[in-house]
């Protein structure tokens, strides 16, 4: 079994349980986390997420990181219950490493996608019980095909490839419409935007989501709080520093009246 490099199987053999439903929790306000988006731009894929976690009407935390690096070439952005999502990311991170180190080759991009689906499927009972629903967006660089790709999932584990962009979370209906509009009738399609302009779009989109969705945190300039924006290119995953986001936000997003 170990010879196949399946880390999740190894954990299970050691008694680890994932995605168990908790019946008593129905009706409880479970913390959830909210607007994430991924879009293809000129050099690869941009993934961004706001930083608010809420439980019912309460803001739990305003510094959540929902765009998580799984390895040097893949990122999972999470919407839903953070506890489950973080656990999923940890399982994935170790699974990919374990596979690479035991099999002496990188897990294929398709294999990584399957691993995400598999975890979501295992999580269905918890998701349906209301304590563990996670709706992620997975983006990564497919080295065999030499292109960055975006996939989104439903809570049952079905995977869908996004041609141009994908969104998830409670603020996503707002920006889905904007993305369609900008991509179709804007000055240029999203896929041709250079890095800086793609980042500006992401900041504007997340600010719009925060405007209409109380569970999405926007930019808080007083606290110097900006969304998390990561770029996936052939060379790997790169995080845009807050200083750059601040500069772009002040120059391109704020409109003084």
């Amino acid at each position: 079994m170990g010879m196949q490099g399946d880390f999740f199987q190894l954990l299970k053999e050691q008694g680890y349980q994932f995605g168990n439903p908790v019946a008593a929790a129905a009706g409880m306000d479970v913390p959830t986390a909210t607007t994430i988006l991924a879009l293809k731009y000129r050099d690869g894929v941009l993934v961004a997420g706001d930083r608010r976690a809420t439980a019912g009407n309460m803001v739990m935390y305003d510094r959540t990181d929902k765009v998580l690096e799984i390895d040097r070439h893949s990122v999972m952005a999470i919407a839903g219950v953070p506890a489950t999502a973080y656990e999923m990311v940890r399982v994935l991170e170790h699974s990919f490493k374990y596979y690479r180190r035991t099999q002496l080759q990188e897990l294929s991009f398709e294999g990584k996608l399957r691993a995400v689906s598999k975890l979501l499927k295992e999580n269905v009972p918890a998701a349906l019980a209301g304590t563990g629903a996670v709706v992620p967006v997975f983006a990564g660089y497919d080295r065999e095909q030499e292109s960055a790709k975006i996939y989104f999932y439903d809570i049952l584990g079905a995977e869908f490839e996004a041609v141009e962009y994908a969104v998830s979370g409670s603020g996503s209906p707002t920006i889905r419409g904007i993305l369609h509009y900008v991509n179709t009738w804007g000055p240029q399609p999203l896929a041709t935007l250079p890095e800086e302009q793609a980042t500006v779009q992401a900041l504007r989109l997340l600010s719009s989501a925060a405007e209409f969705d109380s569970a999405t945190g926007g930019v808080n300039r007083e606290l110097n709080l900006y969304p998390v924006v990561k770029l996936i290119k052939a060379a790997g995953v790169q995080t845009i520093p807050d200083a750059v986001l601040k500069r772009l936000y002040e120059r391109e997003v704020v409109r003084e009246r």
Binding site: G2, M3, F7, V91, H94, Y98, R101
Partner: peptide, 13 residues
């Protein structure tokens, strides 16, 4: 090597 990998990854997780 496999037994080390197994131990290291289960522990790390």
């Amino acid at each position: 090597r496999f037994s080390l990998l197994e131990m290291a990854h289960v522990e790390g997780f």
